[in-house]
Amino acid sequence: MTDTAPGLPRLGTTLFSLSLEQRKPGRDFASLVAEVAARDLGPGLEMVAFQSLRGWPRLDDAAVREVRGVIESSGLTPSCLAINNDLGLYPGRLLTDDESHEYVAVQVRGAAALGFPVARVGVETSPAILERLLPLAEELGVAVGVEIHAPLTIEAPPVAALKELFVRLDTPWLGFIPDMSSSMRAIPEAVYDAHRAAGISPELTAMTKQLWAEPGPTVAKFPELERRAAEAGASPAQVGNLRMLFTMHGKMEPERWADFFPHVVHVHGKFYGIVDGPDGLTDPSIDWPTVARVLVEQRYTGFISSEYEAHAYSDRYDAFDQVRAQHDMLKGLLEAQASVVAR
């Protein structure tokens, strides 16, 4: 296994990176996990429960044994299980707090049964629900982490409320899961593929990318985006696609991830494409040297799950190869940072 030096963040993969691979005929859970291991994309293994585990969250003992067996025989280490709080389960209303708590609690128990040390939820799981989950998390030894994903940034009110909760409770069993979608430096090139398929001209995509990159909060630029897109003749559906770029790609300074510590239980190494440039492997849309520096300075020794998401825009790239490239890049950056920080 490619492992980083002791005392550094550890690498890993979430099977979400392989969402398109999972659609291929003949591909099953066991073969996917085995291939992640064979390609040396561990040691950490994350998965989305509602994606990878049929029948979740009601797995019988035989199913639990089977999943554990697949992971154990791969030699990978369970890092995080992504679970969901489907507040919109019933038409016309959201889950009550009691229902939401129960919906998540069942899944935290499931994560423990499968041997995962962390369960990931989103910000739709409120601070009140998280506080109610704490005794269970503690009892099971499963940390519940809230993913901070675009469009959220450190300034977002729900993030401030979570920070206040985590500081007040000061427990290792609740915390943040930073996702690099919140701190990007450019909109990824892969969107051109998706936009072409949706009939959006490259000029319109380029205009959106440029407007995104201009200073100022993204939300303040929606009216300008809509005005310019309408002038260029974009349909309402196409404007929706352009707006999605502002929602899915956040512009927080990557240095700000330091403010989430020490309450970080896991990290999502979200990325949209690594390129082999003149200076070696680089990521045009995420500033990994800065992210690596923050994680090493904060003495983070948990997992960074490589989360390749350009499959949402394009099927032109091989997700396995992309994760491989990101691992090679990250290992180099983390080990280089370690020597700088140690000085």
């Binding site: 979400f16 659609r23 989305v48 509602f50 049929r54 969901n84 489907d86 389960l89 038409p91």
Partner: peptide, 15 residues
């Protein structure tokens, strides 16, 4: 037909 989403959903969420 297949689900146009990255994970499975309860049928109550299929509108």
């Amino acid at each position: 037909v297949r689900m146009p989403y990255y994970r499975g959903l309860a049928l109550s969420m299929v509108e």
